[in-house]
Design a protein around this nucleic acid. Structure first.
Lengths: 188, 188
DNA sequence: TATTTATATCAACAAATGTTGATGCAATAA
DNA sequence: TTATTGCATCAACATTTGTTGATATAAATA
């Protein structure tokens, strides 16, 4: 592993553990056993470090989301596909997924607004799927907004389970469980 | 409203808006239009401010939780009661609820471990309810751990919707929707 | 060989931030 | 009346923290 890769790995790890605000440049330097100034061989600013990783994973996520949205799948299958996407990204790159869920709050304007705008746009798309599903009779009658947030929160917590821990995860099994929960809840 | 009450209100509001780490003593002072040193008429330290509010609401929450756990309700009704409790606290005191969900990360040892321990204990209790519900046949077969986290995340996002915004909320309606989602998911 | 690239070293600064001490003043309670 | 309580004022300090500039060295590349 090159030093630059070690830097990326360590900084992502620290940001996930302590949060972006609480992670200092000196923390990062110490974790990779080098001088403080050395960190600036890899970044322009601390803020830039957050922005680059955050928007990289965010773009990737939204591009995949749009393909699902624009597909001809029925609402119920679009939901399944979205959950599958979220599980895939979260299990393979949990540290970056944690940026999407937690650390975006540390963005500064105008990046903050840019992120929020994209996220709200995504949430509206999910809400539309739910509304359509209700109309078609695939989903029961419900408040689409509350359902949207509930649904999304069901997958957003996931990274917490797989970031930093060396748990061996059966991606497919996790996906199956989440899909079942979102579609059927607890009940028999 | 006394000055002390204004201090509490403003500091909670700021902590929710910007996060605890990003909220400075000077921010708080400015928000209540007083000198910086003045803030220390009401607190011993910034950290103490977080701790007192966080553990106050946390204790209250867990006391109520234990009453539900120890009741003779069936698993499905315990779940309903828990959701009801969460909605109640979140809708009436969203700013404090946000501490429980977001800001506990800013606690320092040993308070941090204390909080985490309580939270994990709570999660185990919920998991037990689910396991029991499955055994009794009230709930379908599922992975209890994933179900626990999914269930809890379904209610934890709520404060985001009601903190800071002047939305008039029908508590009962929100509760009904959440219960339906947790028990039945999206499906018909 | 010449040169670019990746990384290391050291010192230092400016700004932000939590915190303190000493003091004043007015209202309330004893 | 006296003592306490709640709140305000001002100046100052010690740390923490992001960031820079100038320079060195060894390896990779041209």
């Amino acid at each position: 592993m090159t030093k630059r890769e070690e830097f990326i790995a360590q900084s992502l790890k620290l940001i996930h553990q302590k949060g972006f605000k609480a992670t200092t440049i000196r923390d990062i330097a110490e974790s990779m056993d080098c001088d403080v100034a050395n960190v600036y061989n890899y970044i322009d600013s601390k803020q830039g470090l957050l922005e680059s990783h955050l928007f990289a994973i965010n773009s990737e996520f939204h591009e995949n989301v749009d393909q699902i949205i624009k597909s001809s799948y029925a609402p119920i299958d679009k939901i399944k596909k979205l959950i599958s996407l979220y599980v895939e990204i979260t299990v393979t790159r949990p540290l970056e997924a944690s940026l999407l869920v937690n650390e975006w709050r540390s963005l500064k304007e105008p990046k903050l607004s840019e992120f929020i705008k994209a996220r709200e746009s995504f949430e509206r798309k999910v809400k539309k799927i739910i509304i359509e599903g209700i109309k078609e009779g695939a989903f029961r009658q419900m408040n689409p907004e509350l359902a949207t947030y509930s649904l999304l929160s069901c997958v957003r917590w996931l990274f917490n389970k797989y970031a930093g821990k060396k748990v061996k995860v059966n991606k497919v099994e996790v996906e199956k469980e989440l899909v079942e929960f979102v579609l059927s809840g607890l009940s028999n």
